[in-house]
Each structure stands twice: as structure tokens, then as C-alpha cells.
Design a protein around this nucleic acid. Sequence first.
DNA 1: AAAATTCATCGCATTATTACGATTATAAAA
DNA 2: TTTTATAATCGTAATAATGCGATGAATTTT
Lengths: 110, 110
Amino acid sequence: MGLTKSEEFTVKDNKLAKYAKALSHPARIAILRILIKRQSCICGDIVEELPLSQSTVSQHLKELKDAGLIKGEIEGAKVCYCIDETELNQAKSYIDELFSSYFLSKTSCC
Amino acid sequence: MGLTKSEEFTVKDNKLAKYAKALSHPARIAILRILIKRQSCICGDIVEELPLSQSTVSQHLKELKDAGLIKGEIEGAKVCYCIDETELNQAKSYIDELFSSYFLSKTSCC
DNA sequence: AAAATTCATCGCATTATTACGATTATAAAA
DNA sequence: TTTTATAATCGTAATAATGCGATGAATTTT
């Protein structure tokens, strides 16, 4: 076994889970915060700000990129990462929608 | 290796990551939706609504419980699960805070 | 051209996750 | 008391994730 049954769930729930997975590691949250703070698309300075090796940071960046939350642009030898606003918006609205569906239909029970 | 360096990151980012991890599987999203829909704290009916075995659903419930997003109450032989409103609120505000910190300081770059 | 910088990728070891059947524990029903 | 129902847990197999050093590819700098 060991294989998530993605096909059994809705496309939306799979997408939401994918966004959440990207956010499911403190290093990746920290990376997002750095990218937000330095709005001007900084790159490998991330490595200097985090207590992780270059290869590990690169891997986390890849995962954030695969999830769509960030994008990278090659600038000579450097790579400049930044938030992908469209995707971040979508992630936000998916999450908001899930949460607000609770707060709307709330009647409180146990 | 293979061990997340949690201590190296803030308590808040670890908590946020924990919430996100709970949401990082479509089955758990589906479970949350079921719990939201049937506000009246239903239990093992979840198993019937999902294409997963009882033990697998039980495991997902445990993870949602460990993350704090849901709570279970024993009712005889049954266990009644429901959303933990306080924690869901906290999760929502942590996520909102992260996202809005971007939309506030946005200047768009690449 | 040679050396240095920047970052991705490979390989590896360790640990975590996913899924299920089988078993166990508890409570309800017969 | 015995059976049934409910749900957690154990054990197992497969796959994914975490982290790092080493290596590679590309671009700058010297």
C-alpha cells in the first residue's frame, strides 16, 4: 500500500490538500515569510536566513514551486523567487471557503 | 537524517505547519466537510461516506484530533466527532495572518 | 581560459505517511 | 452470558518526506 487514493476525492479537495501540504513544514512557512518580507524577489539569501543547508532549502523551494505558491525567475547565475499571487489567492479562497462553510452552518454540538 | 528541525523555527510557524499538515490529505479534507455538513457530530458514518477502510479513516481521525482540529466524545459504543471551533478559529487566523501579510505588503515583482 | 559563484540534482540514510487486514477493547443487544 | 456492533490499535508493506554532502550545469568574475 502506501499510496494516496487521490482519484477517490474531488479535484478541489486534492488541490486544497496540495496547497496545505506545501504549508505543512515550518521551513516552508519561514521561506514564504522571507519572500513576503523581501517583496523584491530575493533568491539564495534564503539559505543565509535559515538554519538549513543549501540543498535542503532548494528542495523546499522546489516543493513550494510544484504546489504553485511561488515562482522562480532565472537572472543570470542567480534565481529570483517570489510569491505567485494568483495561486496564493486561490489557496486563500479554497481555505476560506472550507472554513467559512463551518462558521456559516454552525450550531455547535459536543 | 530525516528529522525535521522544529526547534529551529518559531512556535507559531510550527503550529501553522501542524494545522496545514492536518489539512494536507484529501481524505482529511473530506472528513472535515462531512463533519461540517452533519453539524450534529456524527461518527462512524464517515466510514460509509468515504472509499477507505475503517482503520484508515480511524487513523485520519486521529491525525485531525492530534492537530486539534476536531474532538471526539464517547457515546456508548460509538464515538461522536465534531469540529473544535476554538482551534479551527486559531488555524484560520494563523493562515489569514500569513496570507494577508502578503496582500498588505504587496508591490509585485517578477 | 581559469576560478568562483549560484543553484539544482543525485545518492544516501533515516523517519514519516498511507492503507489495509487482523486483532483488541468496550459497550449494546440478544 | 453470548453475540453483535463500534472504533482504536497493531502489524505489515509500500511510498513519501527530511536533511545533507557531493556532484553538475550554468553564469560571472578574474
